[in-house]
Design a protein around this nucleic acid. Structure first.
Length: 146
DNA sequence: GCCAACGTTGGC
DNA sequence: GCCAACGTTGGC
């Protein structure tokens, strides 16, 4: 099963909107490379890191799942998928932190000029992001109280 | 098919 | 709001 990172501007559609709606058609993507991924690669059940772009700070806000694979928009040049809400992270994992995390150096979103709004995410990267979402920034051992 | 002009994305 | 990094368009 594949994993993806999909971008959304929270001012337009946020993880909270997805939590409320439960499912949504993720559309409006006007880029051929992204279109091809939506049409040919993204499959039902794939996991999705829901990313807030043009936000302060930008970062991964939660988890979604692909509920329907690629199907044409009204203008059939372009494709959309349906997303189903899975989880809102207890804390947003900021882009800045992704950039500083070992193992995410190759992740597309951490690389300069990566504007693609659907990005493939490796299994290892996916797990690391989940760990960050759960564990917070402090990965040093918990100091025991005396 | 080249490439300049223009438009968009998105971090900062 | 700025602008770097792309992507697309269209004249030639």
């Amino acid at each position: 099963m594949a994993a993806w990172l999909m971008k959304s501007e929270p001012g337009v559609y946020s993880i909270d909107d997805l939590a409320r709606d439960r499912t949504t058609a993720w559309n409006g993507i006007r880029n051929y490379q992204a279109r091809n991924l939506l049409r040919d690669q993204v499959a039902v059940g794939d996991q999705v890191l829901f990313y807030h772009s043009s936000a302060d700070p930008p970062g991964v806000a939660g988890l979604a799942r692909v509920a329907r694979a690629g199907y044409p928009e009204k203008d059939p040049t372009w494709y959309q998928v349906d997303l189903e809400f899975v989880d809102k992270f207890a804390r947003l994992v900021p882009l800045d932190e992704l950039k500083q995390t070992a193992g995410l150096e190759q992740m597309m979103v951490t690389r300069k000029g990566a504007r693609l709004s659907v990005q493939p995410v490796t299994d290892a990267e996916f797990k690391i992001v989940l760990r960050l979402a759960r564990g917070g920034t402090d990965r040093s051992p918990r100091r025991s109280r005396s």
